[in-house]
Design a protein around this nucleic acid. Structure first.
Lengths: 344, 344
DNA sequence: ACATTTAATGCTAACGTTTGCACAAAAAAA
DNA sequence: TTTTTTTGTGCAAACGTTAGCATTAAATGT
């Protein structure tokens, strides 16, 4: 019932040769007479011989596939990253296996172990918000499995890393808010476990400080599931707006949070940008169609996916570990729109 | 350098047993004394034995992985489908391999062949706009490779199919436009090669006819790349609006087209919904934040992904082909918003 | 003419499992 | 006690490749 393919043995039998000769003739290595080589290769292509990859994998201990571990595909940022990953893999003839952690530590662990066990040649990882302990990676990494982190990274492992300039992006957005006349800028962000949260917060801090504005911890709300659960966002916004002196602007740290906050503000009838300004990280490119247009910090997601993929494949295909691990940082792009246009 | 795992042989040697006994003890089959079974199983779990999947695959000719072929991951609809696929696969312990055709026939063929050759157990496919010839599927299908089509399907192959009620969705949206007072409704759609185009067009036709409105072929624009190239959309809209009697409303047939047309109309200064109404298929759930809110036909993408995945896994795991192939049709949901609200 | 090199091919063992069959020892039946 | 059955285990082949070493025949050197 399964697809019966012709094997190297069949060829050997048909041509009255040994399997080793056939094998060698096909990868034109070693000393094989041009005659037999041609004979074998013609027979092979005529009969549509395709080497059995499972056998090859078993022999070589390589599968020409890479595993991707990320939170959630429908997140615009991740879907673009994934697209970038796939496009590089396609050209390099690697298969891309996708898993979602759904921001769950448990699920991340299971996925990573499953992928490793199913013998991917390398791993492309963006950590879940829940992940603090990274043993599931360190063990594999020590055993020599190539891993590249992107977006939500860690310095507990010595390896390549692909990130956006998170500090810079948050800084730029905050500066824009300040420039527009906002003075009490709140920050709605994700779990402080993940790298991007800290970096973005730093950019927010830096900009406030430069502007001589106070940093108020009460104005920072951490959504532990990165906005995967709608209630988090609702609670964060509610609490912020109930403060004795409520914020006049929101800086949101992720796709989901930005959209969530924006929608909520509008639903609750806040006037944007007069009453509350809002800016945030988002890769949704129709933000200009919103009412008012949403000021966003855009990350070159597709390019980041490509870079991560390239670095990983480099790691996989080089015999020796590199002398130095790269940290590739991509510039973000601030697109200022109506949602922060309080003043001309 | 690669992760050295303990093998069944190691266990056999350590316990002074034969490999076959160990193998059998581990899958507690056959007649093995409780004693040895326990011994083996304890040793195995203590030493973290994990069967080598490549060897198992080679033996069983199964890989516990499924291949997905779709156009483009960042498309909201597809990313949600993919998420549904992954979630079912995760629970059933299948790996999901993702490939993008980017609406290219060539690429689709290469991906399909590559996946089959790399021995996935089954295929989940949404056809590219360019695909007319489906030989690359029929051959594999005849050889017994389970395939399930979703979204852009075909009846050239006898297999399970998962679709939205495309005719109904387009019908509902058109009826809504008519109800709002639009009388010359154009249709911007994708390549007529793909099933969804025909079905959606049919719904559009039916609604027009029921309303006693004329069907004008000049009012139907086919974007052969489904809107992947921005120029197609631009050209379609330009041509429509340049007609002797230009349309007063647009019905768009896909995520990308809907967004593209909406953005273009706004950029060109058309007043929506007074001058031109617009409605279309789209899974973008922030359409309510647009200005005006965008009337959309929503497909239960995640559920469709789940269904497709379940059907495929069913196919893979049943010994015999099913007596009958299913065509699972999911209802769409029309969300009427400002972009079609010409009259109260 | 014989020794030595070179070229082309074959044999065999591996990679880690699974499984039909054979075998031995113990238990049951005669 | 002998025969038969049962129970547990081992052997070996298979899945489709690859690669080190051995082998043969031909070609070159002396």
């Amino acid at each position: 019932m399964k697809l019966e393919n012709i094997t190297i043995k069949d060829i050997a039998r048909a041509l009255d040769l040994s399997v080793s000769t056939v094998s060698r003739a096909l990868k034109d290595s070693y000393k094989i007479s041009g005659e037999t080589r041609l004979l074998v290769q013609r027979y092979a292509s005529e009969h549509q011989y395709r080497p059995n990859v499972m056998a090859q994998s078993l022999k070589s201990q390589r599968s020409r596939s890479i595993g991707v571990v990320l939170c959630n595909v429908p997140n615009v940022f991740f879907s673009e990253v994934l697209s970038g990953i796939e496009s590089v893999a396609y050209n390099s003839d690697y298969l891309v296996i996708i898993t979602q952690s759904q921001e769950s530590y448990q699920r991340e662990v299971k996925n990573v172990q499953n992928l490793a066990w199913r013998s991917v040649d390398g791993l492309l990882v963006s950590l879940s918000t829940e992940s603090e302990n990274l043993d599931h990676f360190t063990r594999l990494h020590e055993q020599g499995l190539p891993i590249v982190f992107f977006d939500r990274v860690t310095d507990l492992l010595q390896t390549h890393v692909v990130v956006a300039d998170n500090r810079g992006g948050a800084y730029d957005a905050t500066v824009e808010l300040v420039r527009s006349g906002y003075r009490r800028i709140a920050h709605v962000t994700s779990s402080p476990h993940v790298s991007i949260t800290l970096e973005r917060r730093q950019g927010y801090f830096d900009a406030l400080q430069e502007a001589g504005l106070a940093v108020d911890e009460a104005c920072i709300k951490y959504c532990m599931h990165g906005g995967m659960v709608a209630e988090e966002i609702e609670q964060a916004v509610t609490e912020l707006m109930a403060l004795p002196s409520p914020p006049d602007a929101l800086l949101c740290a992720s796709d989901r949070l930005t959209m969530g906050c924006y929608a909520l503000l509008r639903r609750r009838g806040y006037r944007i940008p007069e009453q509350v300004g809002i800016a945030g990280f988002s890769n949704f490119n129709a933000a200009e169609l919103f009412c008012p247009g949403l000021t966003t910090v855009r990350q070159p997601a597709f390019e980041m996916g490509k870079a991560a993929s390239e670095l990983l494949i480099g790691l996989i295909e080089s015999k020796r570990p590199p002398r130095e691990y790269e940290q590739r940082v991509f510039a973000t792009e601030l697109v200022a729109r109506g949602s922060t246009a309080r003043v001309r």
